[in-house]
């Protein structure tokens, strides 16, 4: 519901929610309050001033809420009527229920105590909130990889991983000191110091096939580096141009041409300029379209694609 609320209604909702929040977080700073509510401090100050004027009918000083600002810190008194938080809406309940499910998958199975506890909470709220049990969610990343990985990062322990490099289609085993998980472009990446390459590397978390702990303490590796410094990819983007003979959903998704969605570009030949970090990827992607796409440039990749096609044809002859 609240995504389409008008500005005054959004603000009313915020005022109603500010009271119980202040009530439970007495003495909170205006900065923290602004951060927690996702608005500017000027906005919070103006909200608090408005709240100051609100209260029970009668509007004598006794009936108004007491707000105290003391050098940037806020306390509230006399807020009895609004002291409890508002009920949760359907979308909030949904976030909570599905969040519990995601959480359950991240917690190691050995932690039976927590697993049971979450199961109980889910049962308890399913009816109350009215979220159908047929709505389920699972982690995009294998929990058997992610939870030991995070443990290793926190404990500064080395791990050994089996990693699938998609573009070169190779599986390698590496000893790494995992440093941090970075979220970018809808994917999770692991930044790590690779003991084999003796350099910093970035791995796609979903391509780590298995992981085992090594009992070695990590000794200070430099953690500052760019995302692009991985094994898979070159350091600079390679521009390329393709001619699409007949746009299809597969092509749009493979080459990330989302802007073509909904434009109804039916049966229209079109030329698109794109770029990629990997030559290998460009060649494989063009081949995989099965002649729905022609690579126009760069010429050396064009030639390479022709060579590959000839080579493959010979093998099928």
């Amino acid at each position: 519901m609240s995504k389409d609320l008008s500005a005054p209604l959004l603000r009313t909702a915020r005022l109603l929610d500010l009271v119980p929040y202040l009530n439970s977080n007495q003495g909170i700073s205006v900065q923290d309050l602004a951060k927690d509510f996702g608005v500017s401090t000027a906005q919070i100050n103006s909200d608090l001033t408005t709240l100051w004027m609100c209260g029970l009918p009668g509007y004598t000083p006794l009936e108004l809420m007491d707000l105290e600002f003391e050098s940037g810190y806020v306390t509230i008194r006399n807020a009895l009527t609004l002291s409890k938080p508002r009920n949760i809406s359907f979308d909030e309940g949904l976030a909570l229920m599905l969040g519990l499910e995601l959480l359950q998958q991240q917690i190691p199975l050995e932690r039976k105590d927590l697993q049971t506890k979450i199961e109980l909470l889910k049962d308890r709220f399913a009816n109350q909130i009215g979220v159908p049990r047929a709505v389920t969610v699972s982690l995009a990343i294998n929990p058997a990889i992610i939870s030991p990985l995070i443990e290793a990062i926190n404990a500064s322990k080395d791990v050994e991983i089996r990693y699938h490099s998609l573009y070169s289609d190779e599986i390698s085993v590496r000893k790494i000191a995992p440093l941090a998980i970075i979220e970018e472009d809808e994917n999770s990446y692991l930044r790590a110091y690779c003991r084999n390459a003796k350099a910093l590397r970035v791995f796609r978390v979903d391509r780590i096939l298995s992981l085992s702990e090594l009992d070695v303490e990590l000794n200070g590796a430099d953690t500052s580096m760019d995302l692009i410094d991985t094994d898979d990819i070159e350091s600079e983007k390679i521009p390329y141009t393709i001619k699409i003979k007949q746009p299809t959903r597969d092509l749009v998704e493979r080459f990330n041409l989302d802007h073509l969605f909904g434009e109804n570009p039916k049966s229209q030949e079109l030329t698109v300029e794109l770029s990629s970090f990997s030559r290998e990827w460009i060649q494989r992607a063009v081949l995989a379209t099965g002649s729905d796409v022609e690579l126009l440039s760069p010429p050396e990749l064009r030639k390479e694609i022709a060579n590959r096609a000839q080579l493959l044809l010979d093998r099928y002859a």
């Binding site: 929610d17 938080p85 949760i88 979308d91 949904l94 909570l96 969040g99 519990l100 959480l103």
Partner: peptide, 25 residues
């Protein structure tokens, strides 16, 4: 923690609101 799972993902907004309510209890 359940609400925090949604940071930057599909139900981010609703999760933020419910998190504030939980902190108000």
């Amino acid at each position: 923690l359940a609400a925090q799972c949604w940071q930057g993902a599909a139900l981010d907004q609703a999760a933020h609101r419910v998190l504030r309510k939980l902190r108000s209890i």
